[in-house]
Design a protein around this nucleic acid. Structure first.
Length: 433
DNA sequence: TCTGGGGTCCTAGGACCC
DNA sequence: TCTGGGGTCCTAGGACCC
């Protein structure tokens, strides 16, 4: 198993695209009071800046930090190029986020290529063709390959950058040493909460997990986690490389610089979010049967609501209507700092079974209204129009046409409970910006 | 310093079917 | 008349990963 991890990915792409940033402390992330660092250059890391750190703290540690907002379309381009390079080594690879890849190298045996040679060649090509640095780990399974790639990467020790080995291969002796020396939080799947539980149980080391009875571990962590951790502690990891893992959900969340107050503010933001999710679905030719919303309050507590329909949706207004119905079912007494909407339970768009005239079994009146809105949309020929809008936007840019979600009314006429208002017979709402 | 936004997987309870 | 055990689906929440 091979694991590649690109160094400081987002920050490195920014520096490649703007050479004036070379040698400077650069971070990508939100710059506001509620922002966090998504990626930091090694110059920034020398000051202690780390990803997932609140931006306020990063700036305190490094006053000259150059904070960039992030251009994810650009990172995706680089990511695709990265995957093309990996695919030349083997087609058996699995991306993890934009900047990591697992690859099963067993097929290289037939070609008489040693894993270590393949890894070195891959690293050279990433450097030559993408101008990016990376760490590569080789091991018996995903667990060790991932731990090894971390060892292969440059580290900051006492504010100084320690050179990277580039490629790190874990042999049996090293495996055993790591199992004996590693704290539990070094394991995949052990975060702050699980680490705290394990410390509480007197099991702070991976070697402690090897001696504890799995059944008693399961009582505290659940059966799945217990089984996984017990296996890891024996150096076993059965996870295979899955090529083309299809997406299971898409969503859009946003934390607001100023928390939202009142139903109207929330609904108007929700419509924009619904449009983002709907477009993502259509790009993938999926429809989603389940729509969920999440609301985070100023005290950082969150509430979610979801609803599964008998058929799939991929339409801005339909998803917004369902989202509104769900949000309306939440008791909102505080200001809202985050609002999210997600779609899951995908069907291929071509496989969608649409019911136009049957009553739809749903627990709430609002959802029935949403369903009738969907029917209304289809009957009004709205779908073809929307696809045309998507196509125009694809060819001429996203701002070439005004956004459907800016139309205003919810798409549901409260008097008639009909979903005709926004779809209407006349499409004059869709004129250009 | 006070915690983003993109996701995945697991758990527990309830409804429902056979 | 009161009851089981297996299984699926849905919902809400939580933990984790990059």
């Amino acid at each position: 198993m091979l694991h590649v991890d690109l160094d400081a990915f987002f920050a490195s792409v920014e520096i490649l695209d703007d050479p004036s940033l070379v040698g400077k402390p650069v971070a990508v992330g939100g710059s506001g009071d509620r922002g966090v660092v998504a990626s930091a250059s090694y110059e920034a890391r020398r000051f202690g800046v780390r990803s997932a750190m609140p931006s306020v703290m990063a700036r305190r540690l490094c006053p000259d930090l150059i904070m960039l907002p992030g251009r994810f379309d650009r990172y995706e381009e680089y990511s695709r190029a990265f995957h093309r390079v990996v695919s030349d080594l083997t087609p058996d690879f699995e991306p993890l986020g934009l900047d990591e890849v697992f690859a099963d190298l067993r097929s290289l045996r037939r070609l008489n290529v040693r894993p270590i040679s393949g890894a070195r060649a891959l690293r050279e090509r990433i450097r030559d063709e993408l101008k990016l640095e990376c760490g590569i780990g080789l091991g018996r399974n995903k667990l060790f390959a991932k731990l090894a790639s971390k060892k292969a990467k440059p580290r900051v020790v006492d504010g100084q950058l320690v050179d990277a080995r580039g490629v790190y291969w874990v042999n049996r002796a090293t495996e055993e040493r790591w199992i004996n020396e590693m704290p539990v939080e070094a394991l995949w799947g052990v975060g702050p909460a699980t680490a705290a539980k394990l410390r509480h149980l007197g099991l702070p080391w991976v070697r402690d997990l090897a001696r504890i009875d799995e059944a008693s571990l399961a009582r505290h962590l659940g059966p799945a986690m217990a089984m996984t951790l017990a296996a890891y502690a024996r150096g076993e990891d059965a996870r295979e490389v899955v090529v083309d893992r299809g997406a299971k959900s898409v969503g859009h969340d946003q934390t607001f610089a100023r928390s939202l107050r009142g139903h109207d503010e929330i609904v108007s933001e929700l419509r924009g979010h619904a449009g983002v999710v709907a477009r993502a679905l259509r790009e993938r030719h999926y429809v989603a049967r389940t729509i969920s919303v999440v609301v985070r309050f100023d005290d950082l507590t969150s509430v979610s609501r979801s609803q599964t329909l008998a058929f799939g949706v991929d339409d801005d207004v339909a998803i917004a209507s369902i989202g509104e119905a769900l949000v309306s079912s939440i008791h909102i007494e505080q200001a809202v700092r985050l609002l999210g909407i997600h779609a899951s339970n995908f069907l291929e768009r071509s496989q969608n079974q649409v019911q136009l005239s049957f009553g739809i079994e749903t627990p709430s009146t609002n959802a029935r209204v949403a369903a009738s809105a969907i029917s209304g949309a289809r009957q009004a020929g709205h779908e073809a129009l929307r696809d045309a809008i998507d196509e125009v936007r694809q060819r001429f840019g996203r701002t070439a046409l005004g956004s459907l979600s800016d139309l205003g009314p919810t798409g549901v006429d409260p008097a008639t409970q009909q979903g005709r208002a926004a779809f209407g017979p006349e499409p004059s709402g869709y004129v250009t910006d």
